[in-house]
Design a protein around this nucleic acid. Structure first.
Length: 672
DNA sequence: AGGTAGGCGGTTTTT
DNA sequence: CCGCCTACCT
């Protein structure tokens, strides 16, 4: 390990001996480097087996990066179940101990769609008549799980939420999950927590086994994640946390910034601050610093630029009449700078902003890639085919059964399905078992038997093939034998036919993905947890993504379009209008700006086409928070006609709202 | 059982 | 604006 390549503070952190330590690591200060070096240091210098180190990261990408770097430095291919995201680490843990929470080892991890479907059924079953839809329940239940609140803790639930029926729905939802041998994301952590806190002996085995715990992105941990880690922390307290309170951007998902802010007191431990920034030029760091200094709830630190190889370049700000003009400019500007050696990132607040930018990239024939975009495994055709595999693999998967019993069409409609489900409910058996029982007992009409039997046969044959053939062949078998492929190919409608061709392509892609795995369980776990499109187009393509997805990345050229009130800060944050929600948006702005090495381009558009209507908005308040920075804004209003149009839209409202005031001030400040 | 027309609601951000 | 759901028709 090249310890001499680390700076003084980094070295101090990496060579820490034992006990807790907090590393406050600002943007671009070599956080991942420190974390991986620390891992290697523990193995090499502290002589600890790598299997006894937990290293938790926030994304699968970060986990892979750590694995790769550690493998390289140790010259040894380590494959530890303890390196990964919270969810992947504890999904493995849960598979091992699933029977302790009445699950089978091959439990299914539900995605949001499945969760909603299940909740909808539960709400229907409870006969609750209110206009609260399943998404609201889903959100509330997810939040309860983040807070470690169980369905039977009715008092806590009512304290937490004003929805009366919540505890009833929550309880039944959990019952159904157990029946179908499924878990949602929250359950992975909550069940693990239950197992560890209710089984003293088991916990002690883990306590004596785990020697060191490293947590990345500590500012984004929520209550249950932190408490889970503490359950695995023995009295040596070798807990090494790396994070940056200024980059906490997941409060909406339960992340508690207090975890990092209170840590030094809680553990009475030293704090190492990394403030030497090796990424950005000083203009960018000053801009980031002037914005984030408006936040009150922070530990506080200033970054100093330490890379004089980076060109000193001014920050660029552009204003446009419409989103279309803005997108056009982004593509045009990039096409002028584009070359193989530079990296480009276009970071947006909302996924909805991507489409118009994407259009322009295509027009300019620029190679681009959407990072974390539409989820491959959540596409309809993929989920359909996967349901065959899931049902064959786990007969309890009623959601899969319902999805495919009549897909492709087998003439099994609502009424027939009702017979099967009612029978399942009254006998407390799975849907597929219910169908088998009904057929065996000759309780169905001959026509229904002849329609349902082929379906059962396919599932049975698929089941028999598992572990006897390659996953690739298993996938092909299901796609062909189920009639799914034929259904796609036989489409008469011309428009749908074109659509189906791309669906068939996606199914081929699914077969390719299957080919990379050894067994079905492993593959299904991957599907449930690693929800990303792994296809890589070009190494040097422009990366288009949300600000959230950009955390941890860096680019030579960064474009941040859409700096308008209502987009950034988002309309939700403005509705809440609390310092908490606005400070989180501000941290997001900080994350965006600090992704840039030397070329930062901010822009906003006065009008945006959403829901089929033109919406007008004012420049983001964050723009006026960038002080003492020379802003190159030669194109404030793009042309004369748009200037006059802009005036009209502004004069529509007579009251001088705070936002409008800022707009006026801003226009005056940056004129000519 | 299956197809289609019109109404309505939905957009943060992700493991 | 788009996609999902419901109601109604074949």
């Amino acid at each position: 390990m090249d310890l001499h390549l680390l700076n003084k503070e980094q070295k101090l952190a990496v060579e820490h001996q034992n006990g807790p330590l907090l590393v406050l690591s600002g943007a671009g200060t070599g956080k991942t480097r420190v974390l991986t070096s620390r891992f290697v240091f523990i193995v090499k210098n502290l002589k600890i087996d790598f299997n006894r180190i937990i290293a938790v990261t926030f994304t699968n990408k970060a986990a892979n990066e750590i694995k790769e770097r550690v493998n390289k430095e140790l010259q040894h291919n380590i494959d530890s179940p303890w390196i990964g995201t919270f969810h992947s680490i504890f999904a493995k843990f849960l598979r091992k101990h699933s029977q302790l929470v009445k699950l089978k080892y091959n439990f299914n991890i539900l995605d949001v769609d499945d969760q909603k479907k299940l909740l909808k059924q539960v709400i229907e079953f409870c006969k609750i008549n209110n206009d609260i839809n399943e998404s609201i329940y889903l959100n509330e239940i997810q939040n309860l799980k983040d807070q470690k609140i169980l369905p039977n803790e009715k008092l806590k639930i009512s304290k937490y939420s004003s929805i009366e029926s919540l505890s009833e729905v929550y309880e039944l939802y959990q019952e159904r999950l157990l029946e179908i041998n499924g878990v949602d994301f929250g359950d992975i952590l909550l069940h693990s927590y239950q197992i560890l806190s209710n089984n003293e002996e088991l916990r002690n085995t883990y306590l004596s086994y785990i020697d060191h715990i490293l947590i990345d992105e500590f500012q984004d941990t929520n209550l249950i994640q932190y408490d889970l880690i503490k359950l695995l922390l023995n009295n040596k307290k070798n807990l090494f946390c790396v994070g940056d309170d200024d980059q906490s951007i997941y409060a909406w998902r339960g992340a508690k910034i207090e975890n990092i802010i209170n840590f030094p007191n809680e553990f009475a431990c030293p704090v190492v601050r990394l403030t030497k920034n090796y990424r950005s030029n000083s203009a960018i760091l000053e801009a980031a610093s002037s914005i984030i200094s408006n936040n009150k709830n922070r530990l506080g630190k200033e970054l100093i630029s330490f890379n004089n190889k980076i060109p000193d370049q001014k920050i660029n700000l552009k204003s446009f009449y419409s989103q279309e003009e803005e997108s056009l400019w982004v593509a045009d500007s990039i096409s002028r700078k584009f070359n193989e050696n530079n990296t480009f990132g276009v970071l947006v607040r909302l996924t909805a902003q991507m489409r118009s930018i994407e259009d322009k990239f295509i027009k300019f024939a620029l190679p681009y890639e959407i990072v974390g975009g539409p989820r491959f495994f959540e596409r309809k055709e993929i989920k359909d085919v996967l349901s065959y595999l899931k049902l064959a693999n786990s007969n309890e998967d009623d959601l899969a059964f319902e999805r495919i019993i009549n897909l492709p069409r087998r003439g099994i409609g609502e009424q027939s399905l009702k017979i099967i489900i009612d029978n399942a409910r009254s006998n407390r058996i799975s849907f597929i078992k219910s169908l088998e029982v009904l057929i065996d007992g000759n309780k169905l009409s001959p026509s229904l038997i002849s329609k349902t039997k082929p379906f059962l046969d396919i599932i049975k044959k698929t089941k028999d093939l598992i572990n006897k053939t390659s996953l690739e062949d298993l996938g092909i078998f299901v796609i062909e034998e189920s009639g799914y492929l034929k259904m796609l190919e036989n489409e008469k409608n011309r428009l749908k036919k074109i659509e189906n061709e791309s669906k068939i392509d996606n199914l081929k892609e699914l077969v390719n993905a299957l080919a990379e795995f050894e067994n079905l369980d492993e593959f299904l776990e991957h599907v449930g947890l690693v929800n990303e499109n792994q296809k890589k187009i070009h190494n040097n393509s422009i990366k288009l993504m949300t600000l959230h997805a950009a955390k941890g990345l860096e680019f030579d050229h960064v474009y941040l379009p859409g700096w308008e009130e209502g987009v950034f800060p988002s309309s939700r944050a403005l509705e809440q209008n609390t310092s908490k929600s606005l400070e989180e948006e501000r941290r997001l702005a900080y994350v965006g700006i600090t992704r840039a090495k030397y070329d930062l381009n901010l822009s906003y558009a006065s009008s945006r086409f959403t829901y089929g209507i033109n919406n007008y908005s004012l420049p983001s308040r964050f723009l006026s928070e960038i002080n003492n920075i020379e802003i190159e804004s030669n194109n404030l209003i793009s042309n004369k006609s748009s200037e006059s149009r802009n005036k009209i839209s502004l004069s529509n409202t007579t009251a001088l709202t705070p936002g409008k005031k800022r707009m006026m001030e801003f226009l005056n400040k940056h004129k000519k």
